[in-house]
Design a protein around this nucleic acid. Structure first.
Lengths: 229, 229
DNA sequence: GACCGTTGTGTCGCCATCGACACAACGACG
DNA sequence: CGTCGTTGTGTCGATGGCGACACAACGGTC
């Protein structure tokens, strides 16, 4: 069971999705809407009308020329390129969250203050952004939202804004291409996985068996409904 | 122009989306598939067949009983509840990234090592996960991925895994319900926004005009194509 | 002036999806 | 044994989206 998403940008009445972006990108690559549509296996007429709808809401996205020795063609405007960049950033952000592993802890809410809740979990107390009013929750946060520290250099509460902290021992290091996964036993049922660059890993000098401190921000952790019973 | 997404979980041949989850949730609330379908304005027959497709791929999701004084009814199985919890976590994660503001910096890649690139930006050098082979990139990261430090307590390079760091001065603090947005001038065109709990803010004692250090992890920052000309 | 590959329109029909509807089976309860 | 509100099926028609296709307009080039 793997997680996925479909990104879109909503502007006024239209929502531009990955399909639209693929079309624009193909226009940029092929130099004509006709070639772009056929390259994507789509009909020109549909692509044309869709592009018209997009431009009605977003302003000119492509410069079009017709006639001439080569028959004409279409190229992206600056706005069109900006839209591609914007969508790429959104896709990058979403892709990161859909594919990045998360640590999930069962817990119960002890207190709330606005959207911030203090949750008791097997690994300790955690502050999280609560998205439910239930008190039985699951607390989760991303593997790349956790920063590792040596116990000696771990920050005290008053000096940093990352006040969720677990102390634990490293159980394994999985080095991949420039990025490593460090698994830390923090006393919970499942281990905490932290994504770190291999570079950082070497500087920290962390190995299996070492004691480390893992810290992460309350605003980066979420509490959702547990749905038990 | 606001960003959005459509979450789904892919299992084998079916993809369960928000519509399916809404149906399951309605079943849990109303105690029968019939009531759930009508409550959602959907036809029973379609809801029934869709549920059958889901269960064919996922195993039993609802306990169904027919007959009896009350005519019978349906209730979620443990697997069904687990699916709801799983989807809620995914939705929470995606919702966080789609709505959380990001700082975007234009930059050029100086060097690469695997997927990790060193990028020169107006605010300084940054390590990021590169999603493109282009050298003209935009570096972006989430407002809740940045941790603030007092200059005195800011960690040195060897003691933490968060090695991207900007020094700057606070230009404003926007307190909302339990969460505050701190804007920091880091020398780039647009200011850096950091999401912090008001509690952390008070502990740090940060006010406008103060010098602070902002740190964030390379694995939490992305480099995407800039698309200029 | 003919040619060519575009852009710009409109129409037609296919196909998937979904609501609407009809009807059998079920089983506890009065 | 009849009643009732379910579950379990199937069919029909409306709707929307999209490909396929046809055809005019355009404007450099040969």
């Amino acid at each position: 069971m793997d997680a996925g998403y479909e990104a879109h940008l909503r502007v006024g009445s239209v929502t531009v999705d990955g399909r639209d972006v693929a079309l624009l990108r193909a226009v940029a690559d092929h130099g004509s809407l006709n070639a772009a549509a056929t390259a994507l296996g789509r009909s020109y007429s549909r692509a044309h009308s869709r592009l018209g709808d997009l431009e009605e809401a977003l302003g000119p996205l492509v410069d079009r020329e017709r006639g001439g020795a080569d028959g004409g063609g279409s190229r992206l405007t600056d706005e069109g390129r900006a839209l591609l960049a914007r969508f790429d950033r959104l896709a990058a952000a979403l892709d990161g969250t859909a594919t990045t592993e998360r640590l999930v802890l069962d817990g119960t809410v002890l207190s709330r203050e606005g959207r911030v809740a203090v949750v008791e979990t097997p690994a300790g107390r955690v502050r999280a952004l609560a998205l439910t009013d239930d008190d039985r929750v699951q607390v989760s946060f991303r593997a790349d939202a956790v920063t590792l520290h040596r116990p000696s250099g771990a920050p005290e509460g008053d000096e940093t804004s990352a006040r969720n902290r677990f102390e634990g021992t490293v159980t394994g290091v999985d080095r991949a291409e420039a990025v490593a996964g460090v698994t830390v036993d923090v006393g919970a049922g499942s281990p905490l996985v932290v994504r770190v660059t291999t570079d950082s890993l070497d500087r920290l000098g962390v190995e299996a068996g070492d004691a480390v401190v893992a810290s992460f921000k309350a605003t980066a952790t979420r509490a959702t409904r547990a749905y038990d019973t």
